[in-house]
Write a protein that binds this DNA or RNA. Structure first.
Length: 566
RNA sequence: UGCCCCGUGGUGUAAGGGUAGCACAAGAGAUUUUGGUUCUUUUAGUCUUGGUUCGAAUCCAGGCGGGGUAGCCA
């Protein structure tokens, strides 16, 4: 399938100051604590990756590029954290791989599944039981919760807490053998029921789940909990720096406890950073799932979604997302980044890479009354003023044109530089025209303009302030265009669809008029429609010779700002 | 309510005892056959109160504010 081009992440510039995580990594390398670094990106295959994951991916995968270490052995693993058979599906695994590759990162042969370590987890559990550090608890979930205590009071021990290692070993074997139904008992760590950190009040290590696992099938009916499995996964892979988001901070003592009490080949260090939040955007998987299931959007890859699949389809270049992630930095405090910064990164990437064409979104007919009947003139137009090597093309010009409705005002203010009755503007790369007549329909709507052109203005002519784009009506091709806007109307959406959803997040224009060259664009091709914005031929809905366009992002529009002030 | 983490221009972030810097946004101007791009420029900040120090955004204490945390989710 055609997919908007990807490009590998280049080695990063060595100018930016180091964030606190990079400082730690640099120190660990300098001190000789580690000869090279190993990181990992460990998504749970239960949904699609989103822009928040991109922040983590860029961090995890950039570190080995920035700190190659001894013999260039630094690396980043891609690992499916698939310890919950009830939530995970194999189809997500492929989309996750695709998204990581699309972002420009290479995990080489370092693709792993936590479920490949199930035997190891089991052996460690047996070790914990033997050393008296874990026990099988038959309390119901409700009892366990009640006996966990409160924020101010310690928990009370389960009556199974003092069972002997042999008894626990036997019970754990029964759990594993499938002798008990779901929820009948759990394996718990024996740590400290009075700990001020609730995570240390004898946390569950294993639960019984009789469910088929997408990767291990029916081999297991007990599954490890995140807090137990994750440190073991990291240690197994000899990860040096295990980076995760802030909500796992309180879990770190448990992470360290597992590492300290199990026979592991390495001692990874967990470091937490703040997850990404964006204005006008809801990122959490739970919310995205709801939008999809409720039909608010048209699937996980609806271009209004913040999933990587959607951003790809929307036309965001991976390099822009990488640049964005580098710009926002890594910290430990909660913040919310301006969505405009992401869009700015997208514009920057596209400005310097993509050809320009003429396209008229909302066409208004202009008849040039003094144009020689039937005459067609080929006009040379530059493909990208930033990239002279992209050359130029010829655009046909005739006496009947489409221009943008927004480029005409019947009663324009003085700061409006475009067309109005009696006003003169330049048709970009072509001629100056002067509006001589405004034709309206029964309801008083402007339906056509008549104008005269200045034949001497082919390569200059009178200097005018307004320059507009245009398309020859006889040569124009009609294409569907979708204009996307932010999904939410408030800076910090809560997910209240009725109150906060942007009713104009998608506007579909069935027939925009574009110059002939545009019709030849292949799915995934991007361009700028001059003066309007950047567009991509949709990879899903385009047909050969009949592209359907998505607006990636609009151009900066300083006229809109002036107009808004009035 | 306990414990833990965190507070720097509007926003995102540097500086980790010695000139508060950068980017985005906003404003002004220049250039421009895209009201784009580019360039110049202006505005604007260390939560608070004490303490240590010749000197504190930085170290210490209290306060205030924000966040996390009591799944057999991750």
């Amino acid at each position: 399938m055609a997919s908007p081009s990807s490009s590998p992440a280049p080695p990063p510039p060595e100018s930016a100051p180091l964030d606190f995580i990079r400082q730690i990594v640099a120190e660990d390398l300098a001190s000789g604590k580690h000869p090279f670094v190993v990181t990992r990106f460990p998504p749970e295959p239960n949904g699609y990756l989103h822009i928040g994951h991109a922040k983590a991916i860029c961090l995890d995968f950039s570190l080995p590029l920035e700190f190659p270490g001894e013999g260039g052995r630094s690396r980043c693993h891609l690992r499916m954290d698939d310890t919950n058979p009830e939530k995970e599906e194999v189809e997500y695994v492929e989309s996750i791989k695709e998204d990581v590759r699309w972002l420009g990162f290479d995990f080489g042969g370092h693709f792993y599944n936590a479920s490949d370590y199930f035997d190891f987890f089991h052996d460690c559990a047996v070790h914990l039981i033997r050393t008296g550090k874990a026990y099988v608890d038959f309390q119901s979930p409700e009892e366990m919760k009640a006996n966990r205590g409160t924020l101010t009071e310690p928990g009370t021990p389960s009556r199974w807490r003092e069972a002997t290692p042999d008894e626990n070993l036997a019970e754990f074997a029964r759990m594993r053998a499938g002798e008990y139904p779901d929820g009948h008992c759990v394996l718990r760590a024996k740590i400290d029921l009075a700990s001020p950190n609730l995570n240390l009040r004898d946390p569950a290590l294993y639960r019984i789940v009789h469910a088929e696992h997408h990767h291990t099938g029916n081999r297991w009916c007990i599954y490890p909990m995140y807090d137990y499995a994750h440190p073991l996964e990291d240690a197994k892979e000899e990860v040096t720096h295990s980076l995760c988001t802030l909500e796992f901070e309180a879990h770190r003592p448990l992470y360290d406890w597992v590492i300290a009490n199990c026979p592991v080949p390495a001692k990874p260090r967990q470091i937490e950073f703040a997850k990404l939040q964006l204005t006008y955007t809801l990122i959490s998987k739970r919310n995205l799932r709801r939008l999809v299931e409720d039909g608010v959007v048209d699937g996980w890859d609806d271009p209004r979604m913040p999933t990587l699949a959607a951003l790809r389809r929307r036309g965001f270049p991976p390099a822009a997302i990488r640049a964005f992630c580098q710009l926002i930095g890594i910290t430990k405090f909660h913040s919310r980044t301006d969505l405009g910064l992401l869009e700015k990164c997208v514009r920057d990437a596209l400005n310097k890479s993509v050809p320009r064409y003429f396209g008229v979104l909302r066409p208004l007919k202009v008849t040039v009354t003094n144009w020689p009947a039937g005459h067609v003139e080929m006009i040379e137009a530059v493909n990208n003023p930033e990239l002279p090597e992209l050359g130029s093309r010829e655009v046909p010009m005739s006496g009947e044109l489409w221009i943008e409705q927004d480029d005409f005002m019947e009663d324009p203010p003085k700061e409006f530089f475009r067309l109005g009755p009696g006003r003169e503007v330049r048709l970009r790369y072509a001629f100056n025209i002067t509006c001589t007549e405004v034709i309206k329909d029964d309801q008083g709507r402007v339906v056509e303009l008549k104008a005269t052109y200045d034949p001497d203005s082919r390569h200059g002519g009178r200097k005018v302030k307004g320059i507009i784009h245009w398309v020859s009506a006889a040569h124009a091709r009609a294409v569907p265009v979708r204009l996307y806007d932010r999904l939410w109307t408030v800076e910090e959406p809560t997910g209240d669809v009725a109150a906060e959803l942007n009713p104009h997040s998608l506007e579909t224009l069935p027939a925009a008029m574009v110059e002939p060259a545009v019709a030849a664009m292949a799915p995934g091709d991007r361009c700028q429609f001059e003066r309007l914005g950047y567009f991509i031929a949709d990879t899903k809905d385009s047909r050969p010779g009949a592209p359907v366009f998505n607006r990636i992002v609009g151009l900066k529009d300083s006229w809109a700002k002036v107009a808004a002030k009035k």
